[in-house]
Amino acid sequence: MRCSRHRRLNVFKLELRPGSSRLMAYCSPLLAVALTIFFGALLFVALGKNPVTGLQVFLLEPLRNLSAISELLLKTTPLVLCALGLSVCYRANVWNIGAEGQLIAGGLAAGATVLFFDQGSGASPWLVLLSASLAGVAGGACWASITALLRDRFHANEILVSLMLTYIAQLFLMYAVNGPLKDPNGMNFPQSKVFSSDYLLPHLFSGSRLHIGFIVMLAATAAMAVFVYRSFAGYRLTVGGLAPLAARYAGFSSRNALWTSLLISGGFAGLAGAFEVTGPIGQVLPSISPGYGFAAIIVAFIGRLNPIGTIFGGLVLSLFYLGGEMAQSRLGLPSAITGLFQGMLLFMLLACDTLIHYRLRWKK
């Protein structure tokens, strides 16, 4: 009886699909987005909402005018910056899950830098913003270096270490806004002093919050595309991730790949945090990110670990963020609707990738 049951449970097996093409692999994110929209409509029905109205509020309202589109691009900036670094890590087979913590560390370092200059020093605004951005890069890279050190010296699992460091970074942020960075005239609220308008990132358009960090993000995307596809260092990282034994035979150092990928990833996440603090937030708060570092993992895989593709993934995820806010205010849905759509998108993407590259076959 036990043997027959065991045979019934193993009548199917997954095997590699020989006919899978690169075109189908790049169409997988589009199919995943379409399936997410379809099941999102069913979700609105289950919640007692008109699916057409729900999808219109969730997907079209954030694009209704130029002001709304600028907000979409504003949220895209930190998502793409974090995803650029994560793409490098995943290409090198280094599984960094702590971009959120690195973003927090970078934002904290950038905020402390602005507050240091904002003491009547009269420093040039461009000097302050450049110093804050570099401090953010350094803060994120230093936070990622902890993961690299523990993996390099003690063979610790980088997934667990980077994830746990995120919560430690959040605790450091809470300590800072309740201690050394706390505004003495802030009515005892856990927050820093509001930055001077001279020390905030300039806006690209009047009446819009979109700042020059968006231009920096586009330039960083182009630079990373050159690094990944046209540089020998990027080639070494890719080979080390796809074929570790071949990379070792060729003399490529896995240790260098570990440190390089994590420092790049932490630096980009820290820059995203610096842009958030000196951009739309304008001060250091107990929460400087709604989860951009975690959502950037989905962005990286939607973009196929391609720097240019992360822009598409960032637009989709930022649309989900704005759509979730619209659904809360217009339809009375809970805030968890954003995370639910993000989870569905990730699940659909993994399912599409599996069915494109593998197929179910009857086990004889």
Score class of each variant (00 low, 15 high):
4 S>T: 14
6 H>V: 15
8 R>G: 15
15 E>V: 15
18 P>W: 07
19 G>D: 13
23 L>E: 11
25 A>R: 13
26 Y>H: 13
26 Y>A: 14
29 P>A: 10
31 L>R: 10
44 F>P: 01
45 V>P: 08
45 V>N: 12
50 N>S: 15
53 T>P: 03
53 T>W: 11
54 G>F: 02
55 L>Q: 12
59 L>C: 11
60 L>N: 12
62 P>W: 04
63 L>E: 07
63 L>Y: 05
64 R>P: 09
67 S>G: 15
70 S>N: 11
74 L>V: 08
75 K>A: 12
76 T>F: 06
84 L>M: 09
88 V>T: 09
90 Y>E: 09
92 A>C: 11
93 N>R: 14
94 V>L: 04
97 I>W: 01
97 I>G: 08
98 G>T: 02
98 G>F: 02
100 E>T: 03
102 Q>N: 05
107 G>N: 04
107 G>Y: 03
109 A>N: 07
111 G>W: 07
112 A>Q: 10
113 T>V: 14
116 F>S: 12
118 D>M: 05
119 Q>I: 07
119 Q>D: 11
121 S>M: 15
126 W>H: 14
127 L>F: 10
131 S>R: 03
132 A>K: 00
133 S>F: 10
135 A>N: 01
137 V>P: 00
138 A>M: 09
140 G>V: 02
143 W>S: 03
145 S>E: 03
148 A>V: 04
149 L>Q: 07
151 R>L: 08
153 R>I: 03
157 N>Q: 10
159 I>A: 08
159 I>R: 05
160 L>K: 00
160 L>E: 02
162 S>G: 01
163 L>F: 05
164 M>Q: 00
168 I>M: 06
175 Y>L: 13
177 V>F: 01
180 P>F: 14
183 D>A: 08
183 D>K: 10
185 N>S: 14
188 N>Y: 12
188 N>C: 10
197 S>N: 14
199 Y>W: 03
207 G>H: 09
207 G>F: 07
210 L>R: 06
220 A>C: 13
220 A>M: 12
222 A>N: 07
223 A>V: 12
225 A>N: 07
227 F>P: 06
232 F>I: 15
234 G>V: 08
234 G>M: 08
236 R>G: 14
237 L>C: 06
240 G>Q: 06
243 A>W: 13
245 L>K: 15
246 A>W: 09
247 A>N: 06
247 A>T: 04
248 R>F: 13
248 R>Q: 15
251 G>Y: 01
255 R>C: 12
260 T>I: 12
268 F>D: 02
273 G>Q: 06
275 F>P: 00
275 F>G: 00
277 V>K: 01
280 P>S: 00
281 I>W: 03
281 I>R: 02
282 G>W: 02
283 Q>F: 06
284 V>R: 00
296 A>P: 04
303 G>E: 05
306 N>P: 01
306 N>E: 07
311 I>C: 07
321 Y>L: 14
323 G>W: 04
324 G>Q: 01
326 M>I: 12
327 A>K: 03
330 R>L: 15
332 G>F: 08
333 L>S: 02
335 S>P: 09
337 I>L: 09
337 I>T: 08
341 F>E: 01
342 Q>G: 12
357 H>D: 01
357 H>G: 04
361 R>G: 05
362 W>N: 06
